[in-house]
Design a binder for these strands. Structure first.
Lengths: 189, 189
DNA sequence: CCCAAGTGGAACATTGGTGTTCCATCGTGT
DNA sequence: ACACGATGGAACACCAATGTTCCACTTGGG
């Protein structure tokens, strides 16, 4: 939630989003994408990119904030506190899967998301770790697997799912089904 | 296996290795590392790097070849054809885990390993897919999971294991144990 | 319709990585 | 001790990405 001064008019907000989305798409495919590449992907002039984000680092910062927002939203939608831990885990998985390219970017560019905000566990992270602890307590998740490891596993399998789409031409749906099945089996008691 | 002309004297071979190893280490942490960074990591002058690899692309090419060699060696050591499919899968997992940083690099820099050699399935890849097919045939691996997906899963979990070491400070041993357990459960019938 | 807001592109200076040359130094095997 | 292979560092030209300015355009909201 960043205040953007004069409440961005329609056109500005739209262009801003186009640039951010294009940046995620381009950077997720090649973390070394130039601003020119990103501008082209957004269907916009390089000058315009600079109009919205003075420096490259500003764009990356905005990207990082946007990612945090999206993750927070996905986390809320997953309602980790409600229902059985395993069902909650599946909801979480489905929600995060929808992040798409953003997922690949976060994964491939760890140092991009090394800002202070990510340093301390994000709200979603903490919720997730608590969920696994609850799963342990209720005896529905493998106690041999620490919450931190389950977290690593989940992100890795989400990444694997999108790689499956990109590299093996799998459908988004099939990839999600495989991912969910694999996650469920991995974590099960 | 690349022939290197005049059979490299001891010192040259040692320096060459140091540079390659440092490159893997540096690039796995930041794919945008400069040659200066890599030289520093290798404890060597930037000039010396250029003496061994005229251009950056030459270094990357050598890195790619080196990776292919190491994977091929690990693959042979795993003897995928021998014994039960599940045991073979575990051997494979252990061998590949030893690739360490190289694993992270291959994962984080897919376009680096997009050379012609990687284009068509590498020997190890083909062996692996056959192994999963054998697992399916013998009924010891989940038939709902295609060989390609199992492959994605395995690499993703190996990556997760090393991330667990880097980010959560887990020991190499613990990470491998968790990884093996998770792989076994994921793939099991 | 009309004009301010928004845009694209050319042109430019700046920067940091790259690739090259040259020379002084180091160290190791003989 | 000596020579030669190997190295480090300074200095340089080069290039691609970046960041900035200016101006001409279009466009959509009033």
């Amino acid at each position: 939630m960043v205040v953007d001064g004069p409440a961005e008019t329609g056109a500005r907000a739209r262009t801003r989003r186009a640039i951010l989305d294009a940046a995620v798409s381009a950077l997720s495919r090649d973390p070394a994408s130039s601003l020119g590449d990103i501008a082209a992907a957004a269907g916009v002039g390089r000058t315009t990119v600079h109009r919205y984000f003075a420096e490259r680092s500003d764009l990356l910062q905005a990207l990082s904030n946007d990612a945090l927002d999206k993750i927070a939203v996905a986390n809320e939608r997953a309602r980790l506190g409600e229902g059985g831990p395993v069902e909650a885990l599946e909801r979480f998985c489905k929600e995060m899967f929808e992040l798409g390219d953003l997922l690949m970017l976060i994964f491939n560019d760890p140092q991009l998301m090394a800002c202070p905000e990510w340093e301390e566990y994000t709200e979603a992270d903490r919720d997730f770790l608590r969920l696994v602890e609850r799963g342990h307590a209720e005896g529905v998740m493998d106690r041999e697997l620490s919450p931190e490891w389950v977290q690593q596993t989940l992100w890795a399998l989400l990444y694997a799912a999108w790689s499956h789409v990109r590299e093996n031409g799998a459908s988004k749906f099939d990839a999600l089904v495989l991912c969910l099945r694999t996650v469920r089996k991995s974590i099960a008691t």
